[in-house]
């Protein structure tokens, strides 16, 4: 089954395990996806292999970035009227707090969807949604439309 078909199937059933199971990078960092009505929350369970700074210890900033990036592209795939694979153009992240060795959550918001480009805001937190550990935004390009 093609990736894009898996996205449709997962979103219809609310079970994302099969989709995530075929994306190696998602398995490596341990990404999970949970749907609540029309809302989707991505979860990165505590995992020692995701650590960077061994002193705190804290999750590697690159893993937090990768988790947010992957969440944003999955989110976009889910909410396209015609599912397609977005291509990332740029990604900008502000680190606000250390990501401690515990579960991390991500929520995405589609700020602007044009014909070819989408802008997504990404919010990551651990203990409380009010205290984000990182905020990011990304631009994605869609192949369809004008070449």
């Amino acid at each position: 089954m093609r990736l894009i078909e898996l996205v449709e199937k997962a979103h219809a059933s609310g079970d994302y395990s099969e989709l995530i199971g075929v994306i190696p990078y998602a398995r490596t960092i341990g990404l999970e996806c949970h749907r609540f009505g029309d809302d989707v929350i991505f979860r990165l369970p505590q995992q020692d292999e995701n650590l960077g700074n061994p002193i705190l210890p804290a999750i590697h900033g690159g893993v937090i970035g990768g988790f947010m990036e992957l969440s944003a592209s999955l989110y976009l795939m889910m909410f396209q009227p015609v599912p397609q694979m977005p291509k990332i153009v740029d990604f900008s992240i502000d680190y606000l707090r250390a990501g401690l060795n515990r579960d991390t959550f991500v929520e995405c918001r589609l700020t602007r969807q044009g014909n070819r480009v989408a802008n997504v805001n990404i919010h990551a937190w651990q203990k409380s949604r009010q205290d984000p550990i990182a905020l990011a935004r990304a631009h994605f390009l869609f192949n369809s439309g004008r070449k």
Partner: peptide
Amino acid sequence: CIVGNPESGVIHGGAITTLMDT
């Protein structure tokens, strides 16, 4: 383990982000 698209075998941007952050 860092592939983002199993159909093309392309590395996920997140792994590139980790490389660059490090």
